[in-house]
Every structure is written in structure tokens, then in C-alpha cells.
Write a protein that binds this DNA or RNA. Structure first.
Lengths: 239, 239
DNA sequence: ACACATATGTGTGCTAGCACACATAACACT
DNA sequence: AGTGTTATGTGTGCTAGCACACATATGTGT
């Protein structure tokens, strides 16, 4: 076995929502949590189907996707170590109309829906945090909504890469333009053009489904202000 | 005094969220609730400012608006008698990054943020309903997000008019094209064109800021499927 | 080395919605 | 009636992103 990182981030990053819990509450939850490996492309739940588990990503990323038709997909939210995928369960609903797709491989802490439902009936730190996270996620979705409506593909691509980078903690990650086109809600050709522009500006490098961020600051400059806004809100709620 | 309706809907419709509460819980809340008149264009809270009250619309409508710049505004959510404006307060956050604007005149039940915060610490029917409503609202925002990205102005206008009609309970309501352009995130000229098309098809009539729906079924046909999806989810959560 | 699947680049129309600039119409107030 | 304000219609470019159709890499497996 290699001495190299055995997951995409060397296990260094942990779920910040869980990490914010007071020790005793975390200890109480621990037996209900199981570390699992999430793999790019894996589907965690589908629209209309019962959600079996919720996930607290460590160094993985989960995309929440809305589908209008077979061909029109759009990422409406991104869940990383700052949050939890499966909020509907906590909210007392067994299924969601969005799809949860693993967008970045890595580990996550998994909890059964039954356990989550029990937690929803107990007022405590987790309850309080999940409330604040819900608000943060709603803001993210709202901001992205306006962003997707008004901003150009180049800026949105830059924002998306930055958000992914923040959550994976890596400068290099595997992603095809095809996949990106789904996330951004544009055609694959559009991604090709936008990514080409970013590469020409030496901000990223990519080849056959592997993207490397070269100049984070430059990307922020190219991205829309939405990135900063979303990041600020996401970071703020954990305090 | 006239015997005619003294508010836009004759006071017939009541907030369905509150109406769903068991009697004893409703009675407990009643002293904290005050009926207020909301007037088109009124601002209930602004981004970053402390939210003083939450609102349970009876026959009024409140728009949740995201602003990217001075000129780029977009409605990200619509709150009517199915819900409550001011969810952030319940979630333990004192302000929101979205703006709440009265989009349809009428009455609403108002509750102070302090009272809401107390309720958030009490597990009961209101708590449970607000959880389910949060989920419903998130779905609405997510669906609209994709809709705004992919669907044409005509269809989105039709959807918007139907959603407004559902909440106001009226076929006729005051709205300028200017206002509509903000809601839909398009230029005023675009609304003029789209509204002209709907009028030519005898689905609506309008003049100087007053819109009349003439053919509801026809509008549903012109609107995107998003209308039906959002309506189904909104209606479902109250059961 | 070879075939094959996958990933990416590019080119030609086409269209919705933009920006800007007016023209017209309806109402409100005196 | 006259005047000003607000609401709406329209016309001329312009552009981003679409649809469709290929061309061209760059792996992978045998």
C-alpha cells in the first residue's frame, strides 16, 4: 500500500458542522455516524425516492441538482464540509425533489434518516446548527439562482471552480467538461470555450477530465462577486 | 361604508399554515399575532438589516428578492397564504441577504421576531410546520432557479401570473410591467412583448398597471411545467 | 501497435433577450 | 382644457449562448 493520501485530501479536513458541536453532543452522535467513501458520480438520493442517509462531507462534495427535463439539469446547491446533504429528512420530509450527486470524491460521515428524525425532536446544538445551515443553504441557492440568470458562463465557471476548491481542499481534481456543463446549466461547448479562456489566462490547466487551479487570486478576479458573497455567508453561519 | 370587500379578497382567505395548527396551539399564538395591512411595494425587510417581524399572509403576497447589483434584481421566492416571510428569524438568524417586498396588497398576520425566537425553542406543531415549510420553500427556490435559467419569458410570465392568482384569490390585480420585469429578471420591454403575446391569445387583459386573467386553463398551457410542480409541492406540505 | 472509447476543439447559422432611443397612450391634477 | 407624469409599444443593432455537425486529440485495453 502506498504512503500517499488514501483519500483525496489526506483525511485532514473534517466536517465543520460536526466539528462545531460541543464535545458531549458530538460524543452522543458518534455511534450513529459512519465514515464512508463517496465516489465522483455516485447518486446519494433521487427525486421522489426516500432518502436513506444524510451525509456530512469531510473532503467530498455533494451537488444538489434540479432537473427540468431529460436534458435540462442545473446544480442548485453545493454541499461540502460546511454542511449536510439530506436536509429534507431533518425537516420532516422523507424525499426531495432535487437529486444529490457526488461531485467530488472523498469521505463523509453518514447517518441514517431514522437517527436524524430522532435528532429533529431534540433541541440542542445540532438542531440549532442545522437551522442556521438551512438558512445558509437557502441563501446559497437564492444567490446562485440570480447568478445563473445574469452572469456569463466564464464568471460562473470561475466561481464554481473556486467553490469546489474550497470544499475539496485541493488544487487538482477530476472533472470533465461534460460534467461541468450539467452543473452550470450550459452546453458542453460553452464550457469548452469558457475553460479555454481561463486556461489561456493561465488561471487553470486541464486535460481529459483533470482540472488544476493555477492562480486562485486570478480566478477570484474573473469570477463574479457571488463567490465572495456565498463564501462569506457559508463561513459565517458556523460561528 | 361600502358593503363591498374591504380588502382585496373580502377577508375570505386565511393563512393556511396557521389554519393547519391544532386549536390549542393556535390559541396560544393568537395573542402574539396582529392583523396588518400590507400594501403593494412596501418593504418588509432589507438585506443585512434586522428583521423585526415575520408575516403570515392571508390574501397578500410577499416576494423574496435577490439583488446582484443596482440593476439586476430577481425574485427568488414567493410567499402567500401557504407560508411565512421571515424564516431566517425562526432559523436563528436575525437578518437575511434577500429583500422582502409586498407584491400583492392584502392582509397578513404579523408576529414579532422575539416571539418567533421563543417558538423556535419549543417543539410543537408550529415548529413542525415551519420545518416542512422551509423544505417547501427551498424546493420552490430551487425549481424557480432552474426555470429562470432555461425557460422563455412568455412561459415564466404565465407561471408567475398563475402563482400570484393562486395566492391573491383574485383574477384582477394591479401590477406594472416595470414591476414584473424586476420579478422575472428581464427588461421592461421583454415583459411588454411577452404580455402582449398573452393578451393577443386572449389569456389576459391589461392596461396601465392593472392585469386581468381571462383564461386560467390557457395560461397553464402556456406556462412551463414548473408551475404545476411548485404548486403541488406547496399544497402538499400542509398535509 | 492497434483499435476504441472518451474528452475536447471549432465552425456555421440561429434566436432570445439585451441596450439604447424614442413614440405614443392613458391617467391625474389643477 | 392644459400640463405633467406614468405606463406601454416599437424599432435598430448587438451578443451570448443555442443546435447541429464534425474534427481532433488523448487516454486505455489487448
Amino acid at each position: 500500500m502506498s504512503v500517499l493520501k488514501n483519500n483525496s485530501n489526506g483525511g485532514l479536513s473534517v466536517n465543520r458542522l460536526l466539528a462545531t458541536l460541543p464535545k458531549n453532543e458530538y460524543k452522543r452522535l458518534l455511534p450513529k455516524l459512519k465514515t464512508v467513501n463517496l465516489i465522483l458520480g455516485e447518486e446519494l438520493y433521487e427525486p421522489g425516492e426516500a432518502i436513506k442517509y444524510v451525509y456530512f462531507p469531510n473532503d467530498s462534495i455533494i451537488s444538489l441538482i434540479s432537473e427540468l427535463s431529460e436534458t435540462s439539469w442545473l446544480e442548485v446547491g453545493m454541499v461540502g464540509n460546511e454542511g449536510m446533504a439530506g436536509l429534507p429528512v431533518f425537516m420532516g420530509v422523507s424525499s426531495s425533489s432535487t437529486r444529490a450527486l457526488v461531485q467530488g470524491s472523498g469521505t463523509a460521515m453518514r447517518m441514517s434518516s431514522a437517527a436524524v428524525r430522532k435528532e429533529a425532536n431534540r433541541l440542542g446544538s445540532l438542531h440549532r446548527l442545522l437551522h442556521r445551515y438551512s438558512h445558509s443553504l437557502l441563501n446559497q441557492v437564492a444567490q446562485s439562482s440570480a447568478c445563473n440568470r445574469f452572469h456569463l458562463v466564464n464568471a460562473r465557471l470561475a466561481r464554481w471552480l473556486l467553490m469546489t476548491n474550497d470544499r475539496l481542499g485541493l488544487e487538482e481534481f477530476p472533472l470533465t467538461q461534460e460534467f461541468l456543463s450539467t452543473m452550470l446549466g450550459v452546453r458542453r461547448e460553452g464550457v469548452s470555450k469558457a475553460a479555454g479562456a481561463l486556461q489561456a489566462a493561465k488561471l487553470i490547466r486541464y486535460s481529459r477530465g483533470m482540472i488544476t487551479l493555477l492562480d486562485r487570486r486570478g480566478l477570484v478576479a474573473k469570477s463574479c462577486h457571488c463567490y465572495t458573497i456565498i463564501k462569506a455567508e457559508t463561513d459565517a453561519y458556523l460561528n
